[in-house]
Design a protein around this nucleic acid. Structure first.
Lengths: 148, 148
DNA sequence: GAAACATTTCCCACTTTTCCCCACTTTTTA
DNA sequence: TAAAAAGTGGGGAAAAGTGGGAAATGTTTC
């Protein structure tokens, strides 16, 4: 269960130091084996390898002849990379993924349940504001009866 | 299982160096025997030979009287070529396929489960943007209940 | 039919990049 | 305040990328 947002810095080689509070969990859950991929909203996603696998398998079973499914497969499978935490608790974010996410130095790592989101800090701010401003209007039916 | 995107360069002879992380897998799965062919979206496809064979067989069993099936057969079977990895882990992309895919030098090799997609870099970028912008609207029914 | 030329294929060597490990600085906690 | 843990940076060995050249195969022309 991952939650909470942290402002972090990529170092000069593009490495991301995972906050210490997650490291033991990640070592136990997957021996530091993580999967990074690209999200439609312009951020990156980071899964423990065992969480990623069933999602990938479901995706690959869908028909590649449907254009929307094909697009989803292209992004999620196409950008997916195995990454391994090093002894200092860092993971290397590949050039391809850094480019996709517009990551330079200042980034936000945001816990989202079974995975993390990784944002360029400026993009994260923008997304926050966008989410606030469009929050009005109709609620989706799934939220009927939902109370905080 | 192939995943991940890599920016690669064709050399002056039209050879493509397969990223090292795939080489052992490909040698074990098919002794370096691959099949390249043309995809409808303007990229090339590359299968390990054992993955390609059942697809080809299924295609050939379909009725050639249906124009859409006929078109699919023409492209996939018509452009298919056997290629063999050399000792340096490279495959030669034939002039015909290079022309079809508009491949010059800078290309993207994208893992897609049982196969690879091979794109001209500029085309790949364009395709990515197109996929994002048309993602809105109705989801295909197969994706109901799909969660990341 | 043979020889010369062109083309392709295979192999070797060099350069570049990547990855892994170690050490230092900074921060936190007892 | 001291010790331990976390954050940060750098260096070096090993592997991967790249290009060129030689040998073999095929083709064309005389």
């Amino acid at each position: 269960m991952f939650q909470g947002a942290a402002q972090l810095n990529l170092d000069s080689k593009g490495r991301l130091a995972i906050p210490a509070r997650y490291r033991d969990v990640l070592l136990n859950a997957c021996a530091g084996n993580l999967v990074m991929t690209a999200d439609a909203d312009g951020c990156l996603l980071m899964y423990p390898q065992p969480e990623w696998q069933p999602i990938r398998d479901k995706l690959l079973k869908l028909s590649a002849l449907n254009p929307k499914i094909r697009a989803l497969q292209r992004r999620l499978i196409g950008y997916a990379e195995d990454v391994l935490m090093d002894n200092a608790g860092r993971v290397l974010v590949s050039p391809a993924l850094r480019t996709y996410g517009g990551l330079d130095k200042r980034v936000m790592l945001v816990g989202q349940g079974n995975k993390f989101e990784l944002w360029d800090e400026a993009k994260w701010q923008a997304q926050q504001e966008a989410d606030l401003s469009f929050a009005g209007g109709e609620l989706p039916p799934e939220l009927e009866g939902f109370s905080l």
